[in-house]
Simulated assay, not measured.
Amino acid sequence: MQVSVLLQTKGTDVVTVRPEATVAEVAIVLAEHRIGAVVVTGGGGSIDGVLSERDIVRALARPDDGLLAATASSLMTSEVVTCQPDTTVEELMSTMTERRIRHMPVVVDGSLVGLVSIGDVVKHHIATLETETRAMHDYIAHPY
């Protein structure tokens, strides 16, 4: 199965913020949308970075009184690992696990077309296992 199937299920809407958004503004966006990360973009579909709750929490541990006024671009992860719609879910899981990534933007020709989270991958994996379990149960219960 490919990432495009995950996007068909969850949708392609991606919550984004501008690089100059303050951390306070980003925190509000995260809370309002009940999400763990936003894509930072200056527009045009290109990705400048990803800013997650973890990035903000790690910054809180540093002695800095001005954190809430800091910009998204000052805390974001700028070396963003992306995937494409034709990436397999197995490749996605492997990359997310190896790189310890929880949110991966999906791009086509350098433009953002979606965002996949580890939660989306786990949800898909559980649904697959449930389907296989049901099929095995039906086969055992009604072999003919």
Rank of each mutant, 00 (worst) to 15 (best):
E91C: 03
V39P: 01
E98P: 04
L112V: 05
L115G: 04
E132D: 12
P19D: 11
I56C: 00
V57W: 02
R99P: 06
V122M: 14
E79N: 09
L75A: 07
S4K: 07
H125R: 15
T16R: 01
G11M: 12
T12P: 00
V108F: 03
A127W: 07
V80M: 08
A70K: 12
D120A: 15
E98N: 13
L68K: 03
T22A: 00
T82A: 13
D48V: 06
L67G: 01
V5L: 14
L92P: 02
V80G: 08
I28D: 15
T71M: 02
M104T: 11
V113F: 02
V15I: 13
E79T: 09
G66A: 08
L112M: 04
D65N: 02
I118Y: 12
R99F: 14
T95Q: 11
A59T: 01
T87W: 07
R34H: 15
M104Q: 05
I35D: 13
V113L: 04
K10H: 13
A61L: 01
T77D: 05
I126L: 15
I101K: 02
I47A: 03
L129M: 15
V29K: 02
D48G: 10
G45K: 09
V81P: 01
T97E: 11
P63G: 10
V57H: 02
L60P: 00
T41N: 04
Q2Y: 12
I28P: 01
V57S: 02
